[in-house]
């Protein structure tokens, strides 16, 4: 059974149809890609999956459990996390603090609000920050990092949270090519070594073709095509959609 199963998901904003009967599956342990021209409804679909707004129709199941009625923090605590297209980090806290507060909140009692941070956390944080290449800057305020670099603590924070499934919304937007290569490598390692399933929205074709094992393509709010990277690359409908033939 798939880890994430979206079936017949529809979302309208007034008269605008953002998603129309979208179905997709993310099997456990895989890296799945989601592409589509601007305005095709990718981020809306992400938002529906993680609980930002309710679906008009359809169902979303995570590990067999229906989650379309749950809210964002509840879904996050189930182990499905998302990163944002516009990078979001806690700007006035240091990178280490950003990481400390990102540890999983799953079984938190009322008094754990006042928990201190154990030593083991720090060791794990140091290793994760080293993993994303931020160890030397760990004591800087996260907001003082450059825009491109801010993607790194965001990614590290997501890993700190020990998600089962990670939804990445354009992880390479606004990053220089060298950093992109490093990021692809790290995403793959997170998938292989930490066993985190990934669902990635990406505009950069080189990135997504390298990364994903299976790709879904949206256009005008509808599922246009799906298949292996090579199939998608050669699909005439996908090419047309990107060139604006519709």
């Amino acid at each position: 059974m798939s880890m994430l199963q979206v079936s017949g998901a529809s979302k309208r904003f007034g008269g605008v149809i953002a998603n129309e009967k979208i179905s997709l599956e993310v099997p456990e342990g895989k890296i799945i890609g989601l592409i589509g021209p601007n305005g095709s409804g990718k981020t809306t679909l992400f938002n529906s999956i993680v609980g930002y707004h309710p679906l008009d129709d359809g169902s979303i199941r995570f590990e067999g459990q229906e989650i379309s009625h749950l809210r964002v923090p509840e879904i996050a605590r189930l182990g499905m996390l998302r990163t944002f297209q516009q990078t979001r980090i806690y700007g006035k806290m240091t990178c280490v603090q950003n990481m400390q507060i990102s540890k999983p909140n799953r079984n938190e009692g009322l008094m754990s609000m006042f928990d201190r941070f154990p030593k083991e956390d720090l060791a794990r944080i140091d290793h994760l920050l080293e993993f994303v290449g931020l160890y030397s800057k760990r004591n800087l305020l996260a907001g003082d990092l450059s825009f491109g670099q801010q993607k790194l603590p965001e990614f590290a924070m997501a890993l700190m949270n020990e998600p089962k499934l990670l939804l990445l919304d354009e992880p390479t937007a606004g990053i220089n090519p060298t950093l992109i290569n490093g990021l692809i490598d790290r995403l793959k390692r997170a998938n292989e070594e930490m066993g985190i399933t990934l669902l990635v929205i990406e505009h950069n074709m080189r990135v997504i073709m390298n990364l994903a094992e299976h790709i879904y393509c949206l256009a005008h709010g509808e599922m246009l095509a799906e298949g292996k990277p090579e199939e998608i690359q050669n699909d005439q409908r996908v090419i047309d959609a990107y060139l604006g033939a519709h």
Partner: peptide, 11 residues
């Protein structure tokens, strides 16, 4: 710093 992010992280 960012309440939406905090919610998205499950806090």
């Amino acid at each position: 710093d960012d309440e939406d992010k905090a919610e998205a992280m499950g806090i």
